[in-house]
Amino acid sequence: MNAHLPDKTPPMPLWEVFVRSKQGLDHKHCGSLHAADAQMALRMARDVYTRRMEGVSIWVVPSGAITASQPEEQSVDFDPMADKIYRHPTFYELPDAVRHM
């Protein structure tokens, strides 16, 4: 038997897939896949991620087009703003007489 030769086909671009599970809801990231172009990525996303009515709409985005925040900046970017607790409704004490607000 011949030794196995590595595949010479160039790699397919990577796409991130977002699926809207039903009308009125957000598109949500559900995974990624490789495809030659956007049309083929859409078609594959349909087969890979929505075989059981998981969605009514799909977005595919080239993975390279996404700019992500860095984990090491997490504490700065997503500071819980403990000094601005007045942004939360629970900061305010209401008289018991106010039932719904």
Partner: peptide, 9 residues
């Protein structure tokens, strides 16, 4: 098939 898909793209 992979080559054709890339060529088409």
């Amino acid at each position: 098939v992979r080559e054709a898909a890339l060529a088409h793209a």
